[in-house]
Design a protein around this nucleic acid. Structure first.
Length: 339
DNA sequence: AGTTCAACAGACGCGCACAG
DNA sequence: CTGTGCGCGTCTGTTGAACT
């Protein structure tokens, strides 16, 4: 199972521009369906047969609180492998049921304040099933002369397009699946979606059908540590004795943060200050949290904020993930989605 | 009520070093 | 040569608070 969030910026086509009306995107999906000889009707959480115009109305009016250039909706593609489609007999009803389950998971993956949970009925969304895919100019088969742009791909190519509003139904919560991982863990959702298919249809996924998470590469940690040690040494010569840093403690912080960007950014900040003779007495705090000042807690509300802060700084360092979206370096093409 | 601001941290992408 | 990963500058989304 390959579940994808389309990035309109890198995707090139205007069809996925999402900062305005959804008319363009829906129109495009309609056209594509027409090419397959289908008529594009959409389905939602609890009903079928929604017309494009109706969905457009829903999406385009569910934008209170969003700014002019903000994303108003997101385009998702749910793309089972040919084997998976085979397994369920390419059954439209099963695909709909599956999409509904995946959208339930989509809603559930948003981490909201005070542990609020969203259900799919809190979302505004609609989906449509496409049966075919065509070759694109960027496909390797086209480059190799084995296929022509626009030519239909063979085999089962059924996939599902979903349009989901960037605001919840109450228009109070922004729902951006492309943002921070603490807010919405895209990889986790994609993984869940794969497992959902296995569970829902009693299927055992093959390795290549699963989301792969690359573990962090620790092989260079030793050389990182050496470099950091050197930098701390240089830095310590630039500050008065009382402000000098304990190299071992700095190493420990670096290790704890898994040599992430926040650590390096903070280290660079401390170095810059040491160089111009500014005090660096908050160095340990800065290196540990990436923040200059501890969160002050005057009111009860800010206690919660501090807690969230602690949670944030305590986890969520990037595990490196293999690109399953539109990141550079993708060459397989096998799972690439025809829009 | 709605809008703007400031602070912050994660994501993105550039330029570079290095391996094969 | 290409591909990959690194460090870090920059961009962007999210938040609560301070403004209308």
């Amino acid at each position: 199972m390959y579940v994808k969030l389309i990035n309109p910026a890198t995707h090139g086509k205007a069809a996925y521009n999402n900062s305005g009306s959804s008319a363009q995107t829906l129109n495009y999906l309609k056209q594509e369906a027409a090419k397959d000889g289908q008529t594009a009707t959409f389905f939602g959480a609890d009903r079928d047969g929604i017309e494009a115009a109706e969905l457009m109305q829903e999406i385009d009016t569910n934008v209170k609180g969003l700014r002019a250039d903000d994303a108003k909706f997101y385009s998702l593609v749910i793309s089972p492998s040919a084997d998976e489609l085979e397994h369920i007999g390419n059954d439209e009803q099963k695909l709909k049921a599956y999409t509904r389950a995946v959208m339930e998971q989509y809603a559930g993956n948003f981490n909201l304040k005070e542990g609020r949970q969203l259900r799919s009925e809190d979302l505004v969304w609609g989906a449509t099933i496409h049966q075919d895919r065509s070759y694109r100019g960027t496909d390797p088969e086209v480059a190799a002369g084995q296929a022509q742009t626009g030519e239909k791909k063979s085999g089962l190519q059924t996939h599902i397009h979903v349009i989901v509003s960037a605001r919840d139904r109450s228009q109070k919560i922004s729902l951006n699946p492309a943002g921070r991982r603490q807010r919405f863990d895209l990889i986790n959702w994609q993984t869940q979606a794969g497992k959902q298919f296995e569970k829902q249809f009693t299927y055992t996924a093959q390795e290549h059908e699963k989301v792969k998470v690359k573990p962090r590469d620790a092989s260079r940690d030793a050389s990182r540590a050496a470099k950091i040690g050197e930098r701390v040494g240089v830095l310590n010569k630039q500050v008065p004795k009382a402000q000098q840093l304990d190299p071992a403690r700095v190493q420990k912080i670096a290790q704890g943060r898994e040599y992430d960007k926040t650590f390096y950014r903070s280290l660079a900040t401390v170095e810059r200050r040491a160089k111009v003779g500014e005090p660096i007495d908050n160095a340990y705090h800065l290196l540990t949290t990436g923040r200059e000042q501890p969160q002050q807690q005057q009111a009860a509300t800010s206690a919660l904020r501090a807690l969230q802060q602690a949670v944030r700084s305590g986890r969520g360092r990037d595990e490196q993930t293999e690109s399953i979206g539109e990141k550079r370096g993708r060459t397989s093409g096998e799972l690439d989605i025809e829009m």
